[in-house]
Simulated assay, not measured.
Amino acid sequence: MTDTPRPVKTTKTSLALVRAVRDSDGATLSDLADRLDLAKSTVHNHLHTLVDEGFLVREGETYHVGLQFLPFGEHARNRNSLYAPARRRVYALAEQTGNEADFIVEENGRTYSLEYAIGESTRGKLSESSPFRAGNRFYAHNCASGKAMLAAMSEDRVRSIVDRWGLPPTTDRTITDEAALFEKLEAVRRRGFAVNDEELIDGYRSIGAAITSPDGKVVGAFSVGGPTYRMAVDDETTEAIGRLLLDEIDALKTELF
């Protein structure tokens, strides 16, 4: 009989500290101890080890994420064979639309932004409402790229993702009912792309389409988005951007497959 693996508590504590330092954009030992409800001596030992290994740096009394993480993130991103060709098309989409564009992939039921670009009309005035940055992680049910990828997956795969992560709301427009989600995914399949109308974050809209391999496997998605004052979701605009996304995906698939 195979033993069920158990999480290593010390490792989880170190990772929780790193996330807290990142989310706080720097934190002191006392801040971290209070935030995670840990003894200062425990926090001190973990911080000392993380600094010694280069994953955190200390500036005075404040700890920050260290550059030692950089090669790990770059390695994870570059090992995806679609990244380099998709990156070029993300910038093309941003320039063609003047909005924000990104390339997103799914891993373990969550979505990750591998590349993000802004168009000329947006450059220099990036909206604070934008949720996208390279490396950001999202749920799949409340963003356009995520819904597009879910719609291209089998029902069993979608249910396994919902069972693991649930359908947590991030705005009052987020889909939180499983039946409503499956109804929406069917509409996405018919249309060919998905729309996020302030479901991920208030004041932000996007349109996304899934990228699939010749054998039907979901390998990523493109999306174009922006703040509501600049990003319309009327039928004409939505269809135009949706068609542009699908054209870029067809061109990418022709190049790769």
Rank of each mutant, 00 (worst) to 15 (best):
T122N: 07
R87A: 09
L126V: 01
S121N: 08
A117E: 00
E106K: 05
G98V: 12
I161F: 09
K125R: 15
V162F: 08
E95M: 08
A187C: 05
E128P: 03
A144R: 01
P131C: 10
A117Q: 08
K125N: 10
N142V: 13
E115L: 03
W165E: 01
P131K: 03
E100S: 13
M149F: 02
A101L: 09
E155L: 09
R133M: 04
N136Q: 05
P169E: 01
D102C: 09
R190N: 15
V188F: 00
L185K: 03
T171N: 04
D156K: 10
L150C: 11
D163A: 03
L181C: 04
V162M: 09
E120V: 06
A180K: 12
R137E: 08
L126D: 07
R190H: 10
C143G: 10
E178M: 14
S127M: 03
A117T: 08
T174H: 03
E120Y: 08
E95I: 13
N99W: 11
V90M: 13
I161W: 03
T97R: 00
V105S: 01
K147N: 11
Y112N: 13
S127T: 14
R88T: 04
T111D: 01
E186M: 11
M153R: 05
G146C: 15
W165V: 08
T122S: 13
T122I: 03
L181T: 14
F103G: 00
A148W: 00
F132E: 00
N99D: 14
L114N: 06
T122D: 05
Q96W: 14
A148T: 13
W165M: 12
E106R: 12
E155G: 06
G124Q: 10
